[in-house]
Design a protein around this nucleic acid. Structure first.
Length: 269
DNA sequence: CCTAGACCCTGTACGC
DNA sequence: TGCGTACAGGGTCTAG
């Protein structure tokens, strides 16, 4: 479910309950996730959580001895339980704190992961990643130079984590619509001026979505159980056949790199 | 190096 | 009602 805004929303939601707290216990009911749950996680006792960070779509819990790296995959979510609740079928992991609160991880499709690493920033999961989209390192000069001679379709290229992180299927379509660029265009065909519009569109749409608590399409919930409110702001994602809000032309849907892509043939060139 | 496709897994929506 | 199919917010690995 989650792209960057949903992961950041989760991070912000859980941070106040985790930072400077101690892990009392961890309950792992299902260890078969995207990768097996790290062995080191089974032995966590009285470890202090120093910080709750995010890199790309990973949530990073900084402990004294190392880090927990949590990925939500397609269907994962994190909730804070203030009182104990019985675990449902897909409630795979509970992180129980000395405060009595519990961080519960739910993930029906099990594409997510819980890993323990000594240094996440040099880990295989993170060391090849491109810049954070909301950082100064993600700018039009960077993106323009990187895109030269690339034949891959711009939409697929934006979802490539070595280019920029955090832009998934929803926000790739939205950003390309806002910047007036057809998703099928080869990345290398974009002009500097188009790249400039695209960079601004990506930053704007991600920031706005974070402010709204992310996008709830089906079942994404913030860590307090409330939905995100950005779905009502979506311009093209999931709008097949509906009139474009700018020109009234029907929105098209087409598979690009196996993923549904939404666009307006009139407004995007 | 680049690119396209398969694959991991479960739930749900839809057509017949 | 029941069944088969397609599809879903991600990321990695392989083959060509």
């Amino acid at each position: 479910m989650p792209e960057l805004p949903e992961v950041e929303t989760s991070r912000r939601g859980i941070e106040p309950y985790l930072q400077n707290q101690y892990i009392n216990n961890i309950v792992i009911r299902q260890a078969k996730l995207r990768w097996p749950v790290s062995q080191q996680l089974y032995q966590l006792h009285n470890e202090k959580i120093l910080s709750v960070q995010r890199r790309a779509k990973y949530i990073l819990l900084e402990l004294t001895s190392g880090w927990i790296m949590i990925h939500l995959g397609m269907s994962g979510s994190l909730r804070i339980l203030t009182t104990p609740l019985p675990a449902n079928k897909h409630d795979h992991i509970d992180l129980i704190l000395n405060s009595g609160h519990c961080l519960r991880y739910t993930d029906p499709r099990r594409f997510g992961s819980w890993l323990w690493v000594e240094d996440p920033f040099s880990s295989a999961q993170l060391n090849h990643l491109g810049p954070e989209p909301l950082s100064e390192f993600f700018n039009s000069v960077y993106l323009f130079e990187k895109s030269r001679n690339k034949q891959v379709k711009i939409k697929s290229w934006l979802m490539d984590n070595s280019v920029v992180v955090g832009v998934g299927n929803i926000y790739a379509s939205e950003s390309l619509f806002i910047s007036g660029i057809l998703p099928q265009r080869p990345a290398g065909s974009l002009t500097l001026s188009e790249i400039e519009k695209l960079v601004i569109a990506i930053k704007t749409v991600l920031k706005k979505s974070i402010e709204q608590g992310g996008t709830t399409l089906k079942d994404f919930l913030q860590s307090d159980g409330k939905p995100g409110y950005f779905a009502q702001e979506l311009l093209v994602y999931g709008k097949t056949g509906k009139p474009c809000q700018l020109c009234g032309t029907k929105i098209c849907c087409e598979k690009i790199g196996q993923r549904s892509s939404y666009f307006c043939t009139q407004c995007q060139k």
